[in-house]
Design a protein around this nucleic acid. Structure first.
Lengths: 218, 218
DNA sequence: TGTACATCAGTGAACGCGCGTTCACTGATGTAC
DNA sequence: TGTACATCAGTGAACGCGCGTTCACTGATGTAC
């Protein structure tokens, strides 16, 4: 049962609703990425097949293949940033709880969207200098990435101010913490077979955030 | 000046020396990888062009394209493991110095061979279950990876035993430390433009190894 | 010392493939008069 | 209320490309007798 789910045909959009196809293209690209576990699977032709349109139709909405991936990453970074902020806020007033919630949210995001995570942080963008997808530019995407980091930085600073973190430089330590989260998220995707210690998340977060070993966390 | 350095011709090996070409193939693959900054650039035809042989000749030495990359990774993991051991040993008797030397060695390895590092830890092997390159299997490669980790684990345990690390579980903490090193190595390759704090290496290592903030390191 | 032969290292032409991209087009739909 | 027309969304055929891989082969070199 390996059929590729070709949508046979697709009703044409009404005039003025051309942008609907843009959303369909991104959705199809995301599905292909998730299903294949490989960025290579996102080809213009595969995307077109999946929606039930012809391949050249995509050019009405994206300049080229790279632009699709850039737009995908843009959405994903925006979602990550707002999710971290939401998770942090939902954890209540205790700054350590908030920081831990943001870290858990980060790891969960990566675990549930492994292939998307890989294109976000996988180095695709070294070659993407000049690419733009509609109004989306590389600069905007990295800007969204930094918004996510800002959540962590804010929470860590609050921990330090409250005396629950021993960090003396929350801005720099937040970068270090993020690197630990990234290393963990990335390797758990890539080396799922590795015998990870059960409490590895806790271990990485507590050490890098300079928290006292977790007590009284839910 | 974008010529691809085709070696025009190449003297055929004598009988019994067929394995010489195997080494040439791996060297050419490594060069292509380093030059292109992209695993995709390592194609059978590009490798063949570079050495000055015909593409089908490669099949005498490797089962397929994937097998070349596997062999490349195998060599690289072996080099990393022996290098970490050497750096650690060269740092003298102080366990904290040894641990820091191994960490520095790890980061330096990644920084000087960024593309090789990416194929080692980039998740290429999820799909490589059945691949073998000569006697090299996936299991052997991951075994070499764990040898590198064992150096870090040993040094961290020595630090804990000597009281210079507060780690109470060096085996698990070594994994956490490695994850931090990996996150740092990987993102510095991939997001070179990010404004990394100057002391980020020190920050990551000290926190994850539970060392007291460095004093008296050379 | 000579000769037939097996082996080895590597070749050249060809295959089918899916890809990104281009081009000129079609036909429905809204708009101006 | 009707009609010409511009615009918009999407099509179908075709291009050239580099790729992995296959096949039958060539010719040098060592070995057995």
């Amino acid at each position: 049962m390996d059929t590729e789910t070709d949508a046979g045909s697709r009703a044409r959009n009404r005039r003025g609703e051309g942008t609907l196809l843009r959303a369909d293209i991104l959705a199809a690209a995301a599905e292909l990425l998730a299903a294949a576990g490989d960025e290579q699977a996102v080809t213009l032709r595969a995307v077109a097949r999946r929606i039930g349109i012809s391949a050249p139709s995509i050019y009405r909405h994206f300049a080229d293949r790279q632009a699709i991936l850039l737009a995908l990453a843009d959405d994903a970074f925006a979602e990550l940033a707002s999710r971290l902020a939401a998770d942090s806020a939902a954890a209540g007033p205790n700054p350590a709880d908030r920081l831990r919630a943001a870290c858990t949210g980060y790891l969960d995001f990566a675990a549930t969207r492994p292939q998307l995570y890989r294109i976000m942080f996988g180095g695709l963008w070294n070659a993407a200098e000049g690419v733009r997808s509609g109004s989306v530019t590389l600069a905007e995407v990295t800007g969204l990435g930094r918004q996510a980091l800002r959540v962590v930085t804010g929470d860590l600073a609050a921990c330090a101010a409250a005396g629950v973190s021993a960090s003396t430089d929350p801005t720099a330590d937040a970068v270090a913490l993020w690197l630990g989260l990234h290393g963990l998220a990335h390797q758990r995707i890539v080396a799922a077979a590795f015998p990870w210690p059960a409490d590895i998340d806790e271990r990485v977060v507590t050490a890098l955030a300079h928290l006292s070993p977790s007590e009284g966390n839910s």
